Simulated assay, not measured.
Amino acid sequence: MKLSRLSAALGMSVLLAACATPWEVSDVNTIMEAPAPTAGSAFTKALFAEYKAETAQEAKNEYEWDHAAIFARKGLRAAAGEMVGPEEVNTTWYAPDSRVKELTDARARLIGYFGNGARERVPAAAAKAQAKFDCWMEEEAENDANSDCRAAFLKIEPELQVKPAMAPAAPRIVKTFVVYFDFNKATLTKDAQRVLKEVAAAQAEIKPTGIYVSGHTDTVGNSAYNDKLSNSRAKAVAAGLSKLGVGSKIDQKAFGMTKLAVPTKGNVKEGKNRRVEISFEK
């Protein structure tokens, strides 16, 4: 420091609070005159600005230059790219015993946010939260348990939290076609071929993200036989769609007689149950 600078600081200290030393006044003046840093991370640059603002508040509005100097020194360290941490509870400033737990818990949360990447993810908010926590500590030491800095810290705290990723919207069925089969058959009828052509045309227009083909039977026969029959029907429809250029996204399933379109008793021939459903998902 040049002698003229120190002399000026000494002169100013006479006019300011008696508890401020010339060195404290000099540190305050240094940060107030300092330009925005070019070195360091986005967090340390933002932290410099926040501590500079707290320094100005304490020196110019509160006339507490000794307290201002504490913020100034931390800000100057941040300007050099140092990862300065928040104040330890009851180390620099001492809060009443009744306030220690809230401060300790708040600091622990702040350190936790930093550990989860808040300084990298939201550097400006992280820097403001740290400076406001330090200011909160300072004001608690002055018996202000409901200070503006406490309110500011609590207000910005949610921005530091890792927000849960939103689950993607669940796909939904947007269109369904039904192909019917003759009794005990898995061959495509003329009507079935017509429906498959409608499916191909709709697929080109709708562009579904998924196509489901599910085979079904009526209740005639035993379960094992109907499982095989419903699978054969699903395969026949999938093959027919493939010939029409629809096939790369087909998910094929067979349900036998377990999902009836028309509820019936056993061994009942019901044409609407002998079917394959083709569903578009998007």
Results as ranks from 00 to 15, higher is better:
Thr21Leu: 06
Val262Tyr: 02
Phe280Ser: 03
Asn184Thr: 10
Gly245Ala: 11
Met166Trp: 03
Ala39Pro: 09
Ala234Pro: 03
Lys190Tyr: 05
Leu260Gln: 06
Ala39Gln: 14
Ala126Leu: 02
Arg119Asp: 06
Pro37Trp: 10
Lys190Arg: 12
Ala42Ser: 06
Ser223Ala: 09
Glu270Tyr: 09
Val84His: 01
Ala152Gly: 14
Ala126Glu: 06
Asp134Cys: 12
Lys228Phe: 09
Ala239Cys: 06
Asp144Val: 10
Phe280Pro: 04
Lys249Pro: 04
Val14Ala: 00
Arg77Pro: 04
Thr189Asp: 08
Lys101Glu: 14
Val122Lys: 06
Met12Arg: 15
Thr38Ala: 15
Glu120Lys: 12
Lys265Pro: 02
Ser230Val: 10
Ala202Ser: 07
Pro123Ala: 03
Phe71Gly: 01
Pro208His: 03
Pro96Asp: 13
Ala186Leu: 03
Ala129Arg: 00
Tyr180Cys: 13
Phe43Tyr: 13
Trp93Cys: 01
Ala36Lys: 13
Cys135Val: 08
Val199Lys: 02
Pro208Arg: 08
Ala118Gly: 07
Ile31Phe: 05
Thr21Lys: 04
Ala80His: 13
Lys282Met: 12
Val162His: 09
Arg99Cys: 09
Val28His: 03
Ser13Cys: 13
Gln57Met: 13
Pro35Asp: 06
Leu244Glu: 06
Glu102Gln: 14
Tyr212Ile: 15
Phe280Gln: 07
Ile278Cys: 05
Ala42Glu: 09
Val25Asp: 03
Glu277Asn: 12
Arg109Leu: 04
His216Tyr: 05
Ile206Ser: 00
Phe48Asp: 09
Ala78Cys: 02
Tyr113Pro: 01
Ala169Cys: 04
Ile31Met: 02
Pro158Gly: 13
Tyr94Thr: 12
Met166Ala: 15
Thr92Asp: 05
Phe255Gly: 00
Glu102Ser: 07
Ala56Gly: 08
Thr104Pro: 01
Thr209Pro: 01
Tyr225Pro: 05
His216Val: 07
Leu76Ile: 03
Ala201Leu: 11
Lys207Gly: 08
Cys135Pro: 09
Ser98Asp: 14
Ile173Asp: 08
Gln203Ala: 15
Leu241Ala: 01
Pro22Cys: 08
Ala152Val: 10
Ala39Arg: 14
Glu139Ile: 02
Glu33Gly: 15
Val276Gln: 12
Lys2Met: 07
Trp65Glu: 00
Arg121Lys: 15
Val162Asn: 14
Pro35Lys: 06
Lys207Glu: 11
Ile278Met: 06
Ala18Ile: 05
Cys19Tyr: 00
Phe177Asn: 01
Met83Arg: 11
Leu244Trp: 05
Leu76Gln: 05
Ala108Gln: 02
Phe48Val: 11
Val213His: 00
Asp66Lys: 02
Gly240Ala: 03
Ala95Asp: 02
Trp65Ile: 06
Val213Phe: 00
Glu120Trp: 08
Gln161His: 03
Leu196Arg: 07
Lys207Asp: 11
Glu277Cys: 11
Ala200Ile: 07
Ser279Cys: 06
Leu6Gln: 05
Asn146Cys: 03
Asp218Val: 05
Lys163Cys: 07
Ser13Ala: 15
Gln57Leu: 15
Thr264Cys: 04
Thr189His: 08
Leu160Gln: 02
Pro164Cys: 05
Arg233Thr: 10
Ala80Pro: 01
Ser214His: 14
Ser223Gln: 13
Pro22Trp: 09
Thr30Asn: 11
Asn273Asp: 00
Glu159Ile: 09
Asp105Val: 02
Thr189Glu: 08
Lys272Val: 15
Lys132Cys: 12
Thr104Gln: 05
Ala8Thr: 10
Ala46Glu: 04
Tyr51Ala: 03
Gly271Val: 15
